[in-house]
Amino acid sequence: MIHDMGGKYHHGDLRAELVRVSLDLIAERGLGAFSVAEVARRAKVSPGAPYRHFRDKETLMAAIATEVACRLAGKVRDAVEAESEPVAALAAAAGAYTEYLIEHRAGMNVIYADGLQGPEHADLHEQTRRLTDQFVMLCLTVTDRPQDGLELMEQLFTQAHGYGTFHLDGVFTKQGYSKEIVVRKSVEAARVAIEGRRKR
Rank of each mutant, 00 (worst) to 15 (best):
M1Q: 09
I2K: 02
D4Q: 08
D4H: 15
K8C: 07
Y9E: 03
H10M: 06
R15L: 13
R15I: 07
R20C: 03
I26T: 03
I26G: 01
E28G: 05
E28Y: 04
R29K: 14
G32T: 12
A33S: 15
F34A: 07
S35Q: 02
S35C: 04
S35P: 02
S35N: 03
V36C: 04
K44S: 06
V45F: 12
S46M: 11
A49N: 05
P50D: 09
R52H: 11
H53W: 13
H53D: 06
F54D: 02
D56V: 04
E58N: 08
T59S: 10
M61G: 08
A63D: 12
A65V: 09
A65M: 07
A65Q: 03
T66I: 11
T66E: 14
V68K: 09
C70P: 00
R71D: 10
L72I: 13
L72W: 13
K75D: 00
V76C: 08
V76S: 05
D78T: 15
A82N: 02
V87P: 00
A89Y: 02
L90S: 00
A94W: 05
A96S: 09
E99P: 06
Y100V: 11
I102L: 05
A106V: 11
A106P: 03
N109K: 11
I111T: 09
L116M: 07
G118D: 15
P119D: 12
E120Q: 15
E120R: 14
H121K: 15
H121I: 06
A122H: 11
D123V: 11
T128C: 12
T128K: 13
R130E: 15
T132W: 03
D133H: 14
D133I: 10
F135K: 02
M137A: 14
L138V: 10
T141R: 14
D144Y: 02
D144H: 03
D148I: 03
G149H: 01
L150H: 12
M153N: 03
T158S: 10
F166P: 00
H167D: 03
H167G: 01
G170F: 09
V171L: 13
V171I: 14
F172V: 01
T173E: 14
G176E: 09
G176T: 09
V182D: 00
V182M: 04
V183G: 03
K185F: 12
V187N: 00
V187T: 10
A190H: 05
V192Q: 09
E195N: 02
E195I: 12
G196P: 00
R197N: 12
R197M: 14
R197L: 15
R198L: 03
